[in-house]
């Protein structure tokens, strides 16, 4: 696809950080991956002194576990 559309940018096809334009688009992406593509996800709220876990009630146990793990990782590595 990137060859067809020929974008000249290093992010093409190797993107690891996606910033979506609206909350709804981000929510659709997140829930699309979890409930449509079968992916396991994690996430946390940043900007406070310590990482805050805010999850949807419908997230899987494994996703909740990954959230805790990510929070611990971020807490350990934050300056």
């Amino acid at each position: 696809m990137n060859q067809i559309k020929t974008p000249d940018h290093p992010v093409t096809c190797v993107k690891r950080n996606c910033r979506t334009k609206t909350l709804t688009a981000a929510d659709v992406f997140h829930k699309g991956l979890a409930n449509f593509a079968g992916a396991e996800l994690n996430g946390l709220l940043q900007g406070r002194l310590k990482p805050v876990i805010v999850m949807s009630g419908s997230e899987s146990i494994i996703s909740k576990f990954y959230c805790i793990a990510l929070s611990v990782f971020i807490a350990d590595h934050s300056i």
Binding site: T20, T22, T24, A25, V28, F29, G32, F36, A37
Partner: peptide, 19 residues
Amino acid sequence: LFPNIESGNVFYKCHTKLL
């Protein structure tokens, strides 16, 4: 029915490119 083009487009491309 998606509320805007971004959310619909993101879902469409998740389907075609990731899946």
